[in-house]
Design a protein around this nucleic acid. Structure first.
Length: 489
RNA sequence: CGGGGUGUAGCGUAGCCCGGUAUCGCGCCUGCUUUGGGAGCAGGAGGCCGUCAGUUCGAAUCUGGCCACCCCGACCA
């Protein structure tokens, strides 16, 4: 057992916290609800960011940057939007400090802002205020912008990566001439997220639409990708919104169409955040520590020499260094851990904790036999293999591990997804965890009643929902298809 | 914002009931021996015991206030 990490079976929440801290992903900070993302954690985030950014560019988007501060008056222009976010906004009211009478620094009451500034919880309003000036004609459309930024939502209760007061994310904001085109964009970006989650994070997701209650404040439709965590709770990993003309109308963004008429533009917004880090951690990791998919692992292969007496050190280091170069030559991210201040066993445990997918150990015995010891983090297996061609073997192994992780997560999700047709089974299943596919009558009142009774929410109406006549699990009213219920993060 | 915890060295802790400036382990530094699953020995450094006040000759310990963080819940991504 890994030292310092609570076992999942004992306390899942504590396991998660221990992992984040001990694997060096993040620290608690001096500010409540805010975290410090440490270099190793940030390296993973950077890889996510770069992969997503490439996908955004490939679908025609450009990056830009809008202000952190939003004038309070902007916020109130879209009624649903302000309702959704008002309760969790940080507000800047002053712009200067001064020395107080007791020698303490205090806010200078003279320096009160004429109009308070909201620290952005999301940027629709400040961005659409600019879009009004940017968009005149249908020739300016579509406008496809993304920004990488930090946002602040004053949450009551926070958890490292999963819900922090300040978090990093990207938010795409696009403007289109027609509703069809905007809807297409919304779905396209949902696909981008789903592909990223499955191909890069090795995390299977379900694409779906949110119910009215779960919808983004100000959206016409909210699409989402939902993932199932190891404890049986669902996690919303990304959202893509069709905003209709809500923000265009609120900010008076019109364009001249080809016929010379004036129309409001159609909008989308979409985002994923550092919450994905939490999803990644909970999707694959075990009681030994982090398990990272090779495509996102900052270090894919770690090489550990096994010294035997001082005279072997330089020989082994040279041999390992050569191995490292070979791995680098085929594009692997490889690290040599040749420090003499930790023994092999400690290093093994350490790199397992950090989730490095593959470990190569090389001792004198291997040098004599022309072999190395290869260990897989995901299966916790180790084998002695020929040293020749090891770089290509590792390269191939990366694909295998990536696939194994995805399949394992998919198998898990399948084993935790249940079709349920009566209320008693429903309650039992929800209590036990997992995704429950059940009929729902489509009413918000029923949704609320189910939530109050079981704490389960409708995660989404799956896009691939089968048309199937049934009756609502709760009310018995007719239903045309199953929706997914789960307790969620 | 309610309920429950916790605050003593970088980390984990003992001491607190029954006041006398602090225990042990890990880690760190030096040296030697080691190195195929979290090394051994020897020596060493590191603390305003969360904070403020009170009681006392004397407070980690007793009393009161405050603060911070974590967990569970309501709210949310």
């Amino acid at each position: 057992m890994a030292k310092e990490i609570t076992e999942r079976s004992q306390d899942y929440a504590q396991w998660y916290n221990d992992l984040v801290i001990r694997a060096g992903l993040a620290d608690y900070s001096a500010v409540r609800g805010c975290m410090v993302i440490k270099p190793y954690g940030f390296a993973i985030w950077e890889r996510m960011r770069d992969a997503l950014d490439t996908k955004f560019k490939a679908t025609g988007h450009q990056n830009a940057y809008f202000p952190l501060f939003i004038p309070k008056s902007f916020f109130s222009k879209e009624a649903a939007h302000v309702d959704g976010f008002a309760k969790e906004c940080a507000v800047v009211t002053h712009y200067r400090l001064r020395n107080g009478a007791d020698g303490q620094i205090e806010v200078d009451p003279q320096a009160k802002l004429e109009e308070e500034l909201i620290v952005r919880p999301t940027s629709e309003t400040i961005i659409w205020n600019s879009y009004r000036d940017w968009i005149q004609s249908y020739r300016d459309l579509p406008l496809l912008i993304n920004q990488w930024a930090n946002v602040v939502r004053w949450e009551m209760r926070t958890r490292l990566f999963l819900r922090t007061t300040e978090f990093l994310w990207q938010e795409g904001h696009t403007a289109h001439a027609t509703a069809e085109e905007a809807i297409h964009e919304t779905k396209q970006m949902l696909d981008v997220y789903a592909d990223f989650a499955e191909q890069w994070m090795a995390m299977p997701v379900i694409k779906g639409v949110k119910t009215e209650q779960e919808r983004f404040a100000g959206a016409v439709d909210t699409y989402c990708i939902e993932a199932l965590m190891q404890d049986g709770k669902a996690l919303q990993a990304g959202t893509s919104h069709f905003l209709g003309q809500n923000f265009a109308k609120a900010f008076d963004v019109q364009f001249a169409n080809a016929q010379g008429g004036r129309e409001y533009v159609w909008a989308t917004s979409w985002g994923v955040s550092t919450r994905l880090m939490g999803a990644l951690i909970m999707a694959h990791s075990d009681d030994q520590g982090l398990v990272l998919p090779p495509m996102l692992a900052p270090v894919q292969v770690v090489v550990v020499p096994i010294y035997k007496g001082a005279d072997t050190i330089s020989v082994l280091r040279d041999a390992c260094q050569k191995l490292v170069h070979e791995c680098q030559a085929v594009g692997l991210r490889v690290e040599l851990d040749a420090e003499d201040n930790a023994r092999p066993g400690w290093k093994f445990a350490h790199h397992e904790l950090r989730g490095v997918p593959v470990r190569i150990a090389v001792g004198m015995r291997d040098l004599e036999n022309g072999t190395v010891e290869l260990a897989r983090r995901d299966l916790q297996t180790k084998t002695t293999v020929s040293r020749d061609g090891i770089a290509l073997v590792c390269q191939q192994l990366m694909n295998e591990i990536q696939e194994t992780l995805f399949n394992k997560a998919l198998d898990f999700r399948r084993s935790m997804t249940f079709e349920v047709d009566n209320w008693e089974d429903f309650q039992r299943r929800i209590e036990a965890g997992g995704l429950v596919a059940a009929h729902w009558d489509g009413s918000g009142a029923t949704e609320t009643a189910i939530k109050e009774a079981t704490k389960a929410t409708i995660r989404c109406i799956p896009l691939d929902q089968k048309s199937e006549a049934g009756s609502c699990i709760y009310s018995g009213q007719p239903s045309q298809g199953r929706v997914l219920f789960a307790k969620a993060y």
